[in-house]
Simulated assay, not measured.
Amino acid sequence: MRGESLRSRGGPGRARTVFAAVTAAVLAGTGVLTGCTSSDSASSDSSTEAARPSPRPTPVWDRSPSSVAAVGDSITRGFDACGVLADCPEVSWATGTDRAVRSLAYRLLDGPPAELLAEKTWNFSETGARMADLPAQMARAAQHEPELVTVLAGANDACRNSTERMTPVDSFRSSFEASLRRLRAGAPKAQVYVSSVPDLKRLWSAGRGNPLGRQVWKLGICASMLGDSQDDSKAAGARRDLVYERVVAYNGALRDVCAKDKRCRYDGGEVFAVRFSGKQLSPWDWFHPSKNGQGRLAEIAYRNVTAARPPA
């Protein structure tokens, strides 16, 4: 977020039972021709049916995907986590190789060597990206047919120079719908894990007390929320509330669109609810996640991806 931004079971089993019964009846009527008695036939079919296990439906959500692609914005690029005003994808919560962060991919693949992890992961996120940029990122991800795609985007749609320039909710929703269509066109069975947009107002509250952070914010980072960070006037509060409400609406759109896709899982607003501490924020801008913060995001994602049920 740099500049204006920071980015069924009875059916088959019952059918076989009925078929077996009909077959037994036919064989009973033709026993003289086949050399079998009706009781022998019925007994044979019955024992065969009892020995044959009923098939179990394959679960739609695979809790242990073996390849991960990431799309989104600067958070997933690890911006400002390793150095000032620089991407650091090796610490990305989604696909990073840094052992201290233990990214989602690192945890899913049980801590493989960096070389192997790199063969199973792709990071197409871009610093400054908004939801309108996601369809193109999804199309690139689909080319690799990943088993899981992570999504963390939307902060930049609210982080603008002014609240008037924030992305309308309907446009945000349409872009996310288009993103899923692009993915499904190339990778119809890929699972999608969607992170909620962080609470930008809470980040402002956590970082406003740091002198260095305040100076960096003056460069234009998320001005709609961070501008005039020490201004406690009614007008400034109303501006921040507008940004907060827009992020809440974005998360509602992510939840609703994801719910229509059987291979999509939303985090239930968990990232939005995180109270990032000072050590979880970048020491250079006090807004983006630090390595520790990236690890926190990875922890949340891993728990939700591997859970038997999606978050409430």
Rank of each mutant, 00 (worst) to 15 (best):
G128P: 01
A118R: 04
P55N: 06
A81S: 03
T48L: 14
P55G: 10
R99S: 10
V91N: 02
R107Y: 15
G72W: 03
A141Q: 05
G96F: 03
L85P: 13
D62P: 07
A70Q: 11
S47E: 06
V91D: 01
F79S: 09
E90W: 10
E90P: 08
Q143K: 12
P55L: 14
V91M: 01
I75F: 05
A86I: 04
A51W: 00
A118V: 08
P57V: 00
L109K: 06
L85Q: 09
L85A: 13
T48W: 14
A81M: 00
D133V: 15
A70G: 10
V91E: 11
A142S: 11
M138C: 06
P57R: 00
L104P: 00
A69Y: 04
G78E: 07
N123S: 08
D45F: 12
S103T: 05
A42L: 10
S103K: 04
D110I: 10
A114G: 06
T48V: 13
T97I: 06
A118S: 15
G128W: 00
S125F: 05
T58G: 09
A70S: 10
L109Q: 09
L134Q: 02
L104C: 01
R56H: 10
R140E: 05
A118M: 14
P112M: 03
P53I: 01
E119R: 13
Q143F: 06
C82R: 11
E115S: 14
G111D: 10
E49T: 03
L134K: 02
E90S: 14
R107Q: 11
A42T: 04
G111C: 13
D133F: 12
V60M: 08
P65M: 09
A136M: 09
A136S: 06
E49D: 02
E126G: 09
L116M: 15
S66G: 09
D62N: 12
S125V: 15
T97H: 10
A118P: 14
P113I: 06
V91L: 02
L116S: 12
A70W: 06
D110G: 11
K120E: 10
R107P: 10
G111V: 04
T97S: 04
Y106I: 09
V91I: 15
F79C: 11
P55Q: 05
T127G: 15
D45Q: 09
M138I: 09
Y106W: 14
S66D: 12
P59Y: 00
T48Q: 07
D73K: 09
S43L: 13
D62A: 10
S64V: 08
R52A: 04
S66Y: 00
S74R: 02
T76P: 01
R102M: 12
D73E: 05
E126K: 06
L116D: 07
E126A: 12
D98H: 12
R102H: 11
G128L: 01
T58S: 11
A100C: 04
D87G: 05
W93D: 01
P53Y: 01
M131L: 13
L116N: 13
L117T: 12
S64W: 14
V84M: 14
P113Y: 03
D45I: 07
